[in-house]
Structures are given as structure tokens and as C-alpha cells.
Computed example of a mutant assay.
Amino acid sequence: MEHASDTDRIERSIVIDAPRATVWNALADADAFGRWFGADLKGRTFAPGQRARGNITYPGYEHLHFDVVIDRMQPLELLSFRWHPYAVDPAVDYSEEQPTLVTFTLADAGTNRTLLTIVESGFDNVPPHRRLEAFRMNGAGWDAQLTNIVRHVAA
């Protein structure tokens, strides 16, 4: 697991012992994504320009929604979406904030192995009063999600 970040972006990379197509399916299929990420996305699809929304299933966060707009999809290479980072206060309307961009890229890492890189950028546009906490919490969140996707593709 590799860690790199500055004030505007979080970057995490991991080599997964699975073919690129398997990892791509875990990302691009909304239901599969939801299973490892912790969101109920059954019946949803990921498509550029489209919103995907579902209840968070992670214990303690069930009152929240996974809510993204898919930015780009390049099969077997890239999936990106925009969302409001660490939008955890149900009393706050985050819709006026500029969302961050989350990008998943895939590359071959040897026979039947895939390098997955996750970059979330745009934290410098998050309102100052919540920027540091959003950055810190999402950094820890992406660490956990790398473990979750590895577990998912190994199952």
C-alpha cells in the first residue's frame, strides 16, 4: 500500500492479485461497487453524467447516502465520479459546495495482477471550516476501502 498526498489530493495505490477485468467489474458494476464500498446500490448503474445514490450500509453511517455523479468510464482503465467528501451531517446542505473528483485507474502489474490507484482531488475547494476533517477522514476511508476491494475480488 502506497500513500501520497498534499493539501488538495489523496492518493492510494495497491497491487491486487486479480486480473484487470475482475477489478474493473468490482468498480464499474454499481451493485458490486456497493457491496465492497458499503452502500446499497442494487438496481443502480454507473454511466457518465448519471447520478447514482443509495443508502450507506456501513454500521453507524446508515443514516447517510452514497451520492455520486459518474464523470468518466473507460472500460478496464478508468472510472471517476464527483461527490461531496465526508458529507456526514444530515442537517447540512452540501449541494452548494464544489465536489471532489474521485478517480480509480487500473494498470497491469504482472500476470493476473492489477495496480489500482485511487486519487481524490479538489480538497482545496472544500469550505475551509470542514476541509481538514474531510481530508483526514477520507484519507483513512480510502485506506479501509483498499482493504475492502481486495477482500471483495478475492472472494
Results as ranks from 00 to 15, higher is better:
Trp142Met: 08
Ile118Leu: 15
Asp40Glu: 10
Ser13Ala: 13
Ala134Thr: 04
Pro128Cys: 08
Thr103Asn: 04
Thr114Ile: 00
Ala21Met: 04
Ala107Ser: 09
Thr22Pro: 01
Ser95Arg: 15
Ala4Asp: 11
Ile10Leu: 15
Gln145Met: 13
Pro48Tyr: 15
Leu101Lys: 02
Thr45Phe: 03
Arg130Thr: 13
Thr57Asp: 09
Pro75Val: 04
Leu115His: 03
Asn138Ala: 05
Asn25Leu: 14
Ala32Phe: 07
Ala107His: 02
Ile10Gln: 06
Gly54Lys: 06
Thr7Pro: 02
Leu146Gly: 01
Gly122Cys: 03
Asp143Ala: 04
Thr117Gly: 06
Ile14Ser: 02
Gln74Gly: 06
Ala154Glu: 06
Tyr86Ile: 00
Phe135Trp: 15
Arg72Asn: 09
Leu115Asn: 06
Tyr94Phe: 12
Gly43Glu: 08
Glu96Gly: 12
Asp108Leu: 11
Asp31Glu: 15
Arg20Trp: 00
His65Thr: 11
Ala52Arg: 01
Phe46Cys: 02
Glu97Arg: 06
Ala4Met: 12
Ala4Thr: 12
Asp29Cys: 10
Val92Pro: 03
Gly141Leu: 01
Val102Arg: 02
Ala28Ile: 02
Pro85Met: 05
Gly49Trp: 05
Asn148Val: 02
Pro19Gly: 10
Glu2Val: 14
Glu133Phe: 12
Ser13Gly: 03
Asp124Val: 14
